[in-house]
């Protein structure tokens, strides 16, 4: 009889302890999810733990493309997450969280998918826009125009010819802006900051980007990771650009 009583007591205590733990976890989870993620990044109590959790999520789900250290892969057009150059948005944790949730050209309708780099060296550069192909000469002229804008050695005559193509018939300005500064609202890279998403920025690589087109992708994790993990990885990635700090 006594053994039964002890067993019941132990079971009740275990239940109580389990309940208390669950309650604590639930509250902690709620605190993280109810907070404004951009402010959460500066919370000295919560942020370090979340970033550490985010690091593990990153290694499990993002490092395959971005690398363990987040430096990306220029051959594959995988962005460097540590260079403070943000293709989409301004690098705020809230923006990174949206990318982690819904991806880029991921098939998720809430993801980023507004702009695609046309393949100007093909008969139909864009599947959605009425854009005309460019000849190799015109592409080279655009490259020289960009090199001039970057302050790199260039062919002056070709750059002069490239300017009206960039700002006119090539329709490059439509996404990259008339001066090539890009538009992070649509993921159009800055072309004059000497930071290159594909390759080393040499004329050969830029020629490939213009003639073959680009449309990098990032998967959506909304249905594969829980909201706290996504929030954590967003905080971690945001910290990478700041050298690991909040």
């Amino acid at each position: 009889m006594r053994a039964i009583r002890v067993t019941i007591m132990v079971a009740a205590l275990a239940l109580l302890a389990g309940g208390a733990l669950w309650l604590h976890e639930s509250r902690a989870r709620a605190t993280v999810l109810l907070a404004d993620i951009d402010r959460l990044a500066a919370d000295p109590k919560l942020a370090p733990g979340l970033r550490e959790r985010g690091r593990h999520v990153f290694l499990d789900h993002c490092a395959a493309c971005h690398g363990d250290d987040g430096h990306g892969d220029r051959a594959g057009g995988v962005p460097d997450l540590t260079d403070r150059d943000f293709l989409y948005g301004q690098g705020r944790p809230s923006e990174i969280e949206q990318i982690a949730l819904h991806g880029i050209r991921s098939g998720d309708s809430k993801g980023w998918r507004l702009a695609v780099m046309p393949a100007y060296g093909t008969p139909q550069p864009s599947a959605t826009e009425a854009i005309k192909p460019l000849s190799p000469v015109m592409i080279n002229d655009i490259i020289q125009f960009l090199r001039a804008r970057e302050g790199l050695p260039h062919d002056v005559a070709a750059a002069a010819r490239g300017r009206p193509v960039f700002k006119g018939s090539g329709a490059c300005w439509d996404c990259h802006g008339p001066d090539g500064y890009g538009d992070s609202a649509i993921g159009a890279p800055n072309l004059v900051d000497r930071i290159w998403l594909y390759g080393d920025g040499s004329p050969a690589w830029v020629f490939r980007s213009i003639s073959e087109g680009r449309h990098g992708r990032c998967p959506a994790f909304a249905h594969r990771l829980d909201p706290v993990s996504i929030r954590s990885v967003a905080l971690y990635v945001a910290s990478l650009a700041r050298g690991g700090k909040s």
Binding site: A64, C65, G103, R105, S106, G107, D108, S109, R217, P219, A220, H223, R224
Partner: peptide
């Protein structure tokens, strides 16, 4: 379109080695 995209998402989610 949305259903087709959902099917495609699985392919997009798998990172090729």
């Amino acid at each position: 379109t949305a259903t087709e995209s959902l099917v495609a998402q699985n392919a997009l989610a798998s990172v090729p080695t």
